[in-house]
């Protein structure tokens, strides 16, 4: 009798164990995971701020095993990001669940300027905003310019021969250039280059008179004493560049950020969306990412879902106003 009872208990235990493992198995089957390597699209060229940031995210994911499949960075810089946006728009089926993109502000401006692309940025899947990048106005040290008055004087003297290098037509850098032209009555010539790294080099090599680079792009030259910031487009002075006043302090109420967000295609499934949201939240919280944000003067909290959509809607409206004001659209 005793043995029978023992056998019964053992059977029960075995059944229970099997049951639990089945349960665990089915739970695992429910949580969505990528089935192939994920295309990590970058809507800018290699070596610029967006590119370096995307590669950092990729490495944080790899290093900490945040994802079961690798993220493969793909640069699609063509047409101020139009190539990347089209790629995302056309991602359907399995591709839609295996494509995410790192965005810049051309996310708003390129679709406005090129209506024929038929892209509505607000229709993309909001995965997460990783940071907001800051802008400063940079000049070469040898120019002798140390403050905005000098800058305006020098730029006025050169008139249309003052070269402002930037990335892409109708993108962030041009908006800032147009703002400066308007606010100070300048006629700076805007010349687009491929990638912020290249733009920084144009200034260091004195092929351009000024740029509006992100800190990460100019940092190397800044530390070497080749270039210096004159003013920043942030609400408050940046800890790293205490010497540069904000435009607010200078009496021009202009604040401008670059969003560094991760978005998915419209057609991405809810499960995949949830999955990527988890992955990038982990990236945001990682010590590597936090250190990068401090080192490169990045700001902003991680936001996602409806909050990110609201942020996009707000910024989309702002960009539309700016573009209309400067006659780009």
């Amino acid at each position: 009798m005793k043995t029978m009872q023992g056998l019964f208990i053992r059977c029960l235990a075995a059944t229970l164990a099997l049951g639990t493992s089945m349960l665990a198995f089915s739970q695992a089957a429910f949580a969505w995971e990528p089935k192939k390597p994920v295309d990590f699209v970058i809507m800018a060229g290699k070596g610029g701020g967006a590119d370096r940031m995307a590669r950092l995210m990729q490495s944080v994911i790899e290093k900490n095993d945040f994802a079961s499949k690798p993220f493969i960075p793909i640069n699609k810089p063509g047409g101020s990001g139009a190539e990347a946006l089209l790629h995302l728009k056309n991602a359907k089926g399995i591709a839609a669940d295996h494509t995410v993109m790192v965005t810049l502000n051309s996310f708003y401006t390129t679709p406005m300027r090129q209506k024929n692309l038929g892209i509505d940025p607000l229709s993309f899947t909001p995965v997460g905003r990783m940071a907001e990048d800051t802008f400063l106005l940079w000049v070469h040290k040898d120019s002798g310019i140390t403050n905005i008055e000098d800058f305006v004087k020098a730029a006025k003297a050169e008139g249309r021969d003052w070269i402002m290098a930037g990335t892409g037509k109708g993108q962030e850098d041009q908006l800032l250039t147009d703002f400066l032209n308007g606010a100070y009555g300048l006629q700076m010539k805007y010349v687009p280059f491929k990638g912020g790294g290249r733009v920084a080099k144009e200034l260091a090599g004195k092929h351009a008179h000024s740029t509006v680079n992100n800190p990460s792009e100019q940092l190397g030259f800044y530390e070497a004493g080749t270039t210096m910031p004159i003013a920043s487009f942030t609400p408050e002075r940046l800890p790293m560049f205490q010497e540069a006043p904000t435009f607010k302090e200078l009496g021009k109420n202009f604040v401008y950020f670059m969003q560094r967000s991760v978005v998915g295609p419209q057609a991405m499934s809810d499960e995949a969306e949830e999955y990527y949201r988890g992955v990038f939240k982990k990236v945001y919280d990682s010590p590597e990412w936090q250190k990068y944000m401090t080192d490169k003067s990045l700001q902003g909290e991680f936001i996602t879902g409806d909050e990110l959509i609201a942020y996009w809607t707000d910024n989309n409206g702002r960009h539309e106003t700016i573009l209309k004001a400067i006659g780009e659209i």
Binding site: K46, G47, D51, R52, R55, L56, S59, P73, L219, G220, F221, E223, A224, T226
Partner: peptide
């Protein structure tokens, strides 16, 4: 270059 950023090295004149 991306790798160098990841390893924490700042490429540039310095």
């Amino acid at each position: 270059l991306g790798g160098m950023v990841i390893w924490g090295l700042e490429p540039g004149p310095r």
